[in-house]
Amino acid sequence: MKFLIIIPAHNEEENILPSLESLKNQTFQDFKCVIVNDGSTDKTQEIAEKYEVQSTKYKVLNLEKSEHQPGAKVVRTFNKGLETENVEEFDVVCKFDADIIFPENYLEKINEVYENNPNAGMVSGVVFINKDFKTNNYTTSQLLDFTNQNEWTFENLSSKNHVRGPIKSYRKELFLKMNGLRAVLGWDNIDVMLCKMHGYETVTIKELWVKHLRPTAYKYKSQKAEKLGEYFYNIGLNFPLAAISSAKSSLKNKSFSEFFITMKSFLKQKNPRVLTKEEISFIRNLRWSEMFKKLKN
């Protein structure tokens, strides 16, 4: 199978070199990599272009710096890279972050799943972090060494069954059926639900781990409840589902005020939804069925 890898990057000079080196060292080499430099003001472009010169596997697309919007920006940057290639020429489409280090057999193992399981629509390993990590304290060879797993821990932002945003991969047929990625907050949950809608399954290889050099931090902590309301709107929830989901989150965080902030944010959303009526209907039914399933258990 042939992989199309697209890497959105903004000011990643400390991380992109070892990340690209880890791709260069892959045992599976049937891929093309497009690095989309989103207006970096550091040496990201310079580093990426060295790979473009060395091999036709790599291409650099330089953009003007775009406005930051959580969720939306990275997908828009990804889509700019996607536009430069004919997706039909590939079998797997990957959206990788520029601060991920892959073990040498990463693509090989991902490819094996797609080859052996025709129902696999999205596949990934799992993401590990080192909370005390500082890029400058490590050489590239040390970063590429995967014998030190005891120094790294699972990035516990979601379950090990979730294909995480920094290491997404999609079977081409699914990617085209779901009309690619949606440039909104919540895109990396929307894709999972659309994967189910089109009859595919998501697969995470638990023993296959990657290093995340810049652990995901919620930069909008003070706006978390507001962003949650926006997320509920983006994924197509109606009022009852949004209210139940908001209540669950408020109870979990022991914050009575969070419920009202989330629902106020949900109700003020006016932008047209990026999902079709069919997709919204499927997602709502999926959410209801998941809730009833939990109640029965």
Rank of each mutant, 00 (worst) to 15 (best):
V127Y: 07
W209F: 13
E201L: 08
E14Y: 06
F232Y: 14
K219T: 10
I205F: 01
Y233E: 02
K80F: 12
L144F: 08
T140L: 00
G39Y: 05
E108Y: 09
V210R: 02
Y220Q: 12
S257Q: 13
T84A: 10
N86T: 14
D30W: 01
I235K: 00
L237I: 04
R171K: 14
T204K: 06
K252D: 09
A98L: 05
T56I: 12
W209R: 09
S281T: 14
V123L: 06
A120P: 01
F282D: 03
K211D: 02
T216L: 10
V74P: 01
G199W: 06
I283W: 06
Y233G: 02
F239E: 15
K2E: 08
K211R: 15
Y220R: 05
N37R: 07
T262H: 04
D99H: 06
F260N: 09
T44W: 05
N179R: 15
R214M: 14
Q269M: 03
P8C: 03
F31H: 07
K172N: 04
V36C: 04
E112T: 13
R171S: 08
V274P: 00
L144M: 00
E230W: 07
N234L: 05
L213Q: 04
K59L: 02
K177N: 07
C195R: 07
R284L: 06
G125I: 06
A243C: 12
L194A: 05
V53Q: 12
K296F: 14
E49R: 12
Q29V: 10
K43D: 08
N297G: 15
Y218C: 11
E13M: 09
I47L: 05
S250M: 05
P215A: 11
I101H: 01
E88V: 11
L194C: 04
Y51R: 04
K50T: 13
F154D: 09
Y218R: 12
N37Y: 06
N136R: 12
M193R: 10
N111T: 14
L208R: 08
N285K: 15
I6Q: 01
K270I: 00
T139M: 05
F78G: 03
I190K: 01
N238M: 08
N253K: 13
V34A: 06
R214D: 13
Y170S: 06
L176P: 02
V93R: 01
N130K: 10
P70T: 04
R287P: 00
A48M: 06
N136D: 14
T41Y: 11
K131H: 13
V87I: 14
A247Y: 15
F154P: 07
V92L: 00
W187D: 00
A9C: 07
V127T: 10
K160F: 08
H212W: 10
N285Q: 15
Y114L: 00
T27E: 13
N150S: 15
H212C: 06
E207P: 02
V274A: 12
I167R: 04
I190R: 00
A120R: 03
G229E: 03
E230T: 09
L82K: 00
N130H: 12
I129E: 13
S222Y: 14
K211S: 09
F31P: 04
V274K: 10
N148K: 12
T84I: 08
T44N: 07
L286E: 15
V93Q: 04
T204H: 08
K73Y: 00
M197R: 11
G165F: 01
M1F: 07
